[in-house]
Design a binder for these strands. Structure first.
Lengths: 184, 184
DNA sequence: CCGTGATTTGACATTAATGTCTCATGTGAT
DNA sequence: ATCACATGAGACATTAATGTCAAATCACGG
């Protein structure tokens, strides 16, 4: 098999997320192998490890943004939009895990995208508080963290086969909405 | 400064937790430096990186066990015991982070201790469900994960100076108890 | 059927981290 | 003062990961 760009690049990306989300120290040989190519081939697509990491980070952020966008499209309330986004993000757990574990201070472009994502989350949580979904007396930063980590917990539950994707999303949503909701 | 064992070992341990909880790939030079010693000295205390990791893991598990033990001592209900433990575990956040990030499959002794800890957590959560603190219809494994990750979220809030230790613990406890509680 | 160009590959070079060793130095106890 | 001991400092060997390259390979159009 030769003369094929898209398949290979995709395979490397996917393998990168899979391995690096579990073990940030995974070496390029392991990643290349998991992608079904050799290390040299990986280097052809990404000249250095740093470039690979940066490209993956950008891809991860873009995919998560798109997933949220899509999920939020049909929503009429912040609550529904948040819930649908949570469900949509579960399958992207390895992207999320990659961003959480890997050191992303290298490229300023990546840094900027990351910061923007974080700011959007914060706005979103404040909107949820205004709408009455979350207790307005809570720090919005805590809402962000709760969302973030409960999402991660849900993905881990799926990965370890304790729960199905749907079950995990329901658990996370319930814990989040109820946990951050106004004391009723 | 010479002829001092306890201080150095302690310094290395502390530096190890601090650096490795943030960056599992930190090298021994960085750790030694942060501990105020040279790499050679670090090697005298821990002949290899693997041994250092294993020793840190055992220490982390022991310290967390002790903290929980102490915190639970005066409690009369599972709820109170859990809550007090949560508060007691916040300052040990770097231990928790270290265990979460580092790969701990090496030493069977560490593996065993880790597994035991996990089993205890599960029992505990089931007790909390029986007592009525948590909704009994939830999978106990989800309760464990929620506890785990909300604890971690709380520590991160403290580390990034968004919240004080006490505030963070209160946030985490509220989110956990309310989020996993029976729908009232 | 065969040339063409892109791609893959195994081998080699470079670099970073780790582990080992020796000797100098400073400290505290005797 | 001196002995014992721990640390500091530096050189060195070994290993693992990373980066580079020329030759082999394969799909494709002619």
């Amino acid at each position: 098999m030769a003369a094929k760009q898209p398949g290979t690049r995709q395979a490397i990306t996917e393998a990168g997320f899979r391995l690096l989300s579990r073990n940030p120290g995974a070496n390029l040989e392991q990643i290349a192998l998991a992608a079904g190519v050799t290390r040299a081939t990986l280097h052809r697509y990404y000249p250095s490890r740093a470039k690979l990491i940066a490209a993956l980070a950008l891809t991860a952020i873009r995919e998560m943004d798109e997933a949220v966008e899509r999920a939020s499209a049909g929503a009429t309330t912040v609550a529904q939009s948040l819930r649908d986004s949570l469900f949509a993000l579960i399958p992207l757990g390895d992207r999320h895990g990659f961003l959480a574990h890997e050191d992303i201070q290298a490229e300023p472009e990546v840094e900027a995208a990351f910061e923007r994502m974080r700011a959007e989350m914060l706005d979103w949580m404040e909107a949820a508080q205004t709408e009455g979904l979350f207790d307005p007396s809570l720090p919005a930063s805590w809402c962000v963290r709760s969302f973030d980590y409960l999402l991660y917990a849900a993905w881990e539950s799926v990965r370890s086969e304790e729960l199905t994707a749907k079950q995990a999303a329901q658990m996370a949503w319930r814990t989040l909405a109820q946990g951050l909701g106004d004391t009723s």
